[in-house]
Computed example of a mutant assay.
Amino acid sequence: MKYRTQYFTVPSSVSFSTVKYRTLAECGDFPLESSYEKVERCVYTSTLLYEYSGFGFKISTNDYNTGSRTVRVNDRHVCWKLAYLERFTADFYITDAKSGMRALVKAGYDSKVIPLVGENLIVNTRKKNRMVSSTLKKWLEERSLPVEARLLHLKEGFIKEGTSLTVVGMLSKKNEIYMIVPPPDAISTSCLLQKLLLPVDFDGLILRFPSKT
């Protein structure tokens, strides 16, 4: 199944149509607040906590000078493991700029959502200063996570009301209300030969919003 980009101006007889929209988000009845930065009126939030897990090595199998296939070990780099993750989505609205038609995006409770949202680094404790701030300590305590000083990365992402995002899902009409819901079958991105990309199947409502960095 392939998706297409279109406006909301679909015939009234259409009951289901797989579509892709790029538009502004508008909160529904239950807006979200980001976990750490406390950003209000969001339609999607995610917070990821990483802990230091040691050093690793970059492995290369090519020697670009000689063309040989021998394995080489490059510079060491820090390895991080995901220690905690939380993601939330809520129902929200999008509006067609041309027709003014409004649709409810069913991304909330019990909906399968695939978020393509970049997270930004919010907290970065360093080797010379591993102290946990009072704000981070409170956040950790509220989630029953260890609060001792250590190397941490905390990343957070969100889609705030009024920002532009891309929604891919199934457009339906029920009782004169347009809704975008997760598709019953997988959606294929099709093959993009110019970018050398093979088809990828998605089996949920797609929300795409790039990172701020």
Score class of each variant (00 low, 15 high):
residue 1 M to A: 10
residue 5 T to G: 10
residue 5 T to F: 11
residue 5 T to A: 12
residue 6 Q to K: 10
residue 6 Q to S: 14
residue 6 Q to W: 09
residue 9 T to Y: 08
residue 12 S to R: 09
residue 12 S to W: 06
residue 12 S to Q: 12
residue 14 V to C: 08
residue 15 S to K: 15
residue 17 S to V: 07
residue 18 T to M: 07
residue 18 T to Y: 06
residue 19 V to E: 08
residue 20 K to T: 09
residue 20 K to C: 13
residue 24 L to M: 10
residue 26 E to S: 11
residue 27 C to S: 12
residue 27 C to A: 12
residue 29 D to V: 04
residue 33 E to L: 03
residue 36 Y to N: 01
residue 36 Y to A: 01
residue 39 V to R: 05
residue 40 E to L: 11
residue 43 V to P: 00
residue 43 V to K: 00
residue 44 Y to F: 15
residue 45 T to I: 08
residue 45 T to S: 02
residue 45 T to R: 05
residue 46 S to C: 13
residue 48 L to T: 12
residue 50 Y to P: 06
residue 50 Y to W: 08
residue 50 Y to N: 00
residue 50 Y to I: 01
residue 50 Y to S: 03
residue 52 Y to F: 13
residue 52 Y to E: 03
residue 54 G to L: 05
residue 57 F to A: 11
residue 57 F to R: 15
residue 58 K to D: 13
residue 58 K to Y: 06
residue 59 I to W: 04
residue 59 I to C: 05
residue 61 T to L: 06
residue 63 D to L: 01
residue 64 Y to V: 11
residue 64 Y to K: 10
residue 71 V to Q: 10
residue 72 R to S: 15
residue 74 N to L: 15
residue 75 D to I: 04
residue 76 R to L: 05
residue 77 H to T: 10
residue 79 C to W: 08
residue 80 W to N: 00
residue 92 F to W: 03
residue 93 Y to L: 10
residue 94 I to Q: 02
residue 94 I to D: 04
residue 95 T to R: 11
residue 101 M to K: 14
residue 101 M to S: 10
residue 101 M to G: 04
residue 103 A to K: 03
residue 107 A to L: 03
residue 109 Y to R: 12
residue 111 S to F: 03
residue 112 K to C: 08
residue 116 L to I: 13
residue 119 E to Q: 11
residue 122 I to F: 00
residue 122 I to Q: 05
residue 123 V to Q: 04
residue 124 N to M: 06
residue 127 K to M: 10
residue 127 K to D: 09
residue 128 K to C: 07
residue 128 K to H: 11
residue 132 V to I: 15
residue 133 S to Q: 05
residue 137 K to D: 11
residue 138 K to H: 08
residue 140 L to Y: 02
residue 141 E to P: 00
residue 143 R to Q: 05
residue 144 S to K: 12
residue 145 L to T: 02
residue 149 A to V: 05
residue 153 H to C: 07
residue 154 L to I: 07
residue 154 L to F: 02
residue 155 K to M: 09
residue 157 G to R: 01
residue 158 F to Y: 14
residue 159 I to M: 08
residue 162 G to M: 05
residue 163 T to V: 07
residue 163 T to R: 11
residue 163 T to M: 09
residue 164 S to D: 06
residue 164 S to C: 11
residue 166 T to C: 07
residue 168 V to E: 01
residue 169 G to M: 02
residue 172 S to M: 13
residue 173 K to R: 15
residue 174 K to S: 12
residue 175 N to C: 07
residue 175 N to R: 07
residue 176 E to M: 10
residue 178 Y to L: 15
residue 180 I to D: 06
residue 181 V to Q: 14
residue 183 P to I: 05
residue 183 P to R: 00
residue 184 P to I: 00
residue 185 D to H: 11
residue 185 D to N: 15
residue 188 S to I: 02
residue 190 S to L: 09
residue 194 Q to E: 15
residue 195 K to N: 13
residue 199 P to T: 07
residue 199 P to W: 04
residue 203 D to K: 07
residue 204 G to H: 02
residue 204 G to Q: 02
residue 206 I to L: 12
residue 206 I to Q: 01
residue 209 F to N: 12
residue 212 K to Y: 10
residue 212 K to N: 11
